[in-house]
Design a protein around this nucleic acid. Structure first.
Lengths: 149, 149
DNA sequence: ATCGTTGCAAAATTTTTGCAATTAG
DNA sequence: CTAATTGCAAAAATTTTGCAACGAT
């Protein structure tokens, strides 16, 4: 359903980029946490846990950039705070859309299913001569907990 | 179709907040530029043009916060760079959604119509016990210009 | 007279960049 | 070997905060 680490690494390599220990770890962490929306800081931490090491934030950002340039990853800012990244959905096996309910109170983000809409989005993009890479869709409001405060 | 300056000012006043020259200008600029998605910096500039003056960035951010707490305004980050703000749509006269095509190349943001989807979003929110304030919806990809580079 | 608001300056946060040293291919 | 990548440190960009002075009600 999502891109796997090997595919990421392969794609980078095919573009003449080099696979270092840090880069490989970034790919692996991303592939393993495709359910999460990781901040760069969280990604950094998991990468360092994995390599037992001293990988530095700028390396993470540069890896993110590299993957993003390949269209393998997208980043988006949902509300306040740092941006989050996640792998692209695989267009061959899945649809392109990500959907979230973003709570303004606690920042909690709930992923929701809404496959029906995706088709309409594709048409929309076509009408505007837009080559769609991914859809981010944030429904901003208050979750039940925060609404009752 | 959108909230007007007087409504903004009235709502702030009703909440016991005070209407200063800076704050009034913020409300007026926002109401006048409801088509744009202003960054804090752009808002600052327009406010200063309007009051001929020395309003400072932190004042803008504090006004944004005040309006956001009232649910009159929302801010979102679409891709890189600074966040943008815009007034809430008026739920009585219009639907809640904002839609954008965000070009990864040049950052250009095109607003699109897609009213049909909004209803589905409302149902979606209800299913998740989520009180919807607004919908932000970014279709990330490349516009025609950038795709041909 | 109160208490929210402002400007200013300083800090916090997130991300980017320059550069010499390292390392993958 | 060659050129991409790294760590480090410094800078940039955006947003937040503390505080004394000011101003709205």
């Amino acid at each position: 359903m999502h891109i796997e680490a090997d595919e990421l690494i392969g794609a980078l390599r095919r573009s003449g980029l080099r696979i270092t220990k840090a880069r490989r770890a970034v790919c692996e962490v991303l592939a393993e946490s495709h359910l999460d929306h990781l901040t760069a800081a969280a990604l950094l931490q998991r990468v360092n846990e994995r390599v037992g090491g001293n990988v530095v934030a700028s390396t993470i950002y540069r890896s993110i950039d590299a993957l993003e340039e390949q269209g393998l990853l997208h980043h988006i800012h949902l509300g306040h705070g740092p941006g989050v990244v996640h792998l692209s959905d695989d267009p061959l096996r899945d649809h392109l859309a990500h959907h979230h309910l973003v709570c303004e109170g606690c920042g909690r983000t709930v992923d929701v299913e809404m496959a029906a809409v995706v088709e309409a989005m594709g048409e929309l993009a076509q009408e505007h001569d837009f080559s769609m890479k991914s859809v981010h869709f944030a429904l901003v409001g208050l979750c039940l907990d925060c609404a009752s405060l």
